[in-house]
Amino acid sequence: MAVAAVKEYVGVPKDTQDKFHGAQLTFIGWLDHLMFCAPFAVPLPPDMPFGAIIEGVLPGACGHHPDFAKIDWSTVEWTKGGKPFSPDPAKSLTENGMRHKDSITFRTPGLTGIKGSST
């Protein structure tokens, strides 16, 4: 049963990719840094190189955190949909297999937030 209804009932999703003016929505979470209360939601061009997330998106979103400047990006561990993910920074989001509304996270080994509190 997809829904209890008196007759045939089909739900129309309100956030399919065609509604985002060419962008695809991406969710990004920085693990162990709950100073940012929830993962970020950002609309990104699918042909944007993955590296632009690191250089163009995250500094504005996360720059306020004292750990951000200390990140060694070569050691960062990514996941997509909860599974390990090895994005190629030079390739586009699409070429890296990222779809609309994918959720990615990154862990920064050695950096665990304010006083190690995961904040």
Partner: peptide
Amino acid sequence: GTLPMLCQVCQIPMLFTEPGDPTRICYRE
């Protein structure tokens, strides 16, 4: 300054942590 990811059902930003681990955001898909 960046908008948060929301839960599809309760519509609250995904701020809740995993049961038993208050350092990890709880993700379900």
